[in-house]
Design a protein around this nucleic acid. Structure first.
Lengths: 154, 154
DNA sequence: CTGGACGTTTACGCGAACGTAAGCTATCAC
DNA sequence: GTGATAGCTTACGTTCGCGTAAACGTCCAG
């Protein structure tokens, strides 16, 4: 009984980009609830992503019906978020990915985005490190002040 | 002629906490424009901080008049932001700092906040590092794919 | 008198990513 | 019939830290 699905994001971006993972997995369509549970998001989130043009499920009457491709896109969206892309950026990249023609061009553009994002992340990391340093210094000094105070108040 | 004021935040939290820096500096009151220029913020920002209760300048008629204490508080606000505190958190800490009585108690509370924030920052740093790793791996793979494609398309 | 610098207020906008109803439908089991 | 479950749509609310007018007052130099 597959009850303990992956909650904390397994697999990486590249395998998700492969998308057509016909690895013997039988299920080909999903309801919104199934997908939500599987990826640990709310229904609202999935509808929101659709509204933003990130996913476009078919309809069974008025109910949404997701296929494997939709599922793969969702996976990419969530992983894109994890590495700090905004939904808009992810949207651009997915659109690009859908223009399955040049192939090489897409890959190059994606590669560029990835490298840019790495730079952004490195900058953020640097800022955070500076903040940690500053706070650590402050903690040192304040601790010292506390000890003095405590001593003199005795 | 003091024209090149500090734009990129000089001094640290501790010296700012000392606040009563009577280091021969004559000026004791400031207009909103002066303070804005000195710290590189907009007038809107200063008014916003006042609205949030972070600074409470006196009034000259209806114009704001900042004294050295207000200036010191502003400095603390900006440095608090730099190390990742929200304005609300900063507000709490400033209020606490104004209850100049226990002294020791304030310092302890502040110390606690600082240490907590250090933890938060360390977590953020860790997340960012993971993201960088993931993206780096992806870049590796995609670069490889590109080379293959380029070779086979020749 | 006119313009410019400097200041004031109130108040809506934004961008990101959804949360949170409100009110409705459809299906199923019991 | 009746409640639970799962879905739908529309649309306003939220958090943060201001930006950006709009519309006005005050003072000074030329």
């Amino acid at each position: 009984m597959p009850m303990s699905e992956a909650l904390s994001m397994e697999g990486d971006i590249v395998t998700a980009m492969a998308s057509t993972d016909e690895t013997g997995n039988k299920k080909t369509t999903f309801t919104i609830g199934e997908l939500a549970k599987e990826f640990g998001v709310t229904l609202r989130t999935l509808r929101f992503y659709e509204d933003k043009g990130l996913i476009n499920p078919r309809r069974d009457g008025q109910n949404r019906l997701y296929n494997r491709r939709d599922r793969a896109r969702l996976k990419l969206v969530l992983m894109g978020k994890q590495v700090g892309f905004s939904l808009n950026e992810i949207c651009d990249m997915l659109d690009l990915y859908d223009l399955r023609d040049g192939q090489v061009v897409q890959l190059r553009v994606a590669l560029d985005k990835f490298n840019q994002q790495i730079d952004v992340l490195k900058q953020q990391k640097s800022h955070i490190e500076q903040a940690i340093d500053e706070l650590s210094r402050t903690v040192e000094v304040v601790s010292g002040m506390l000890k003095q105070k405590e001593a003199s108040e005795k």
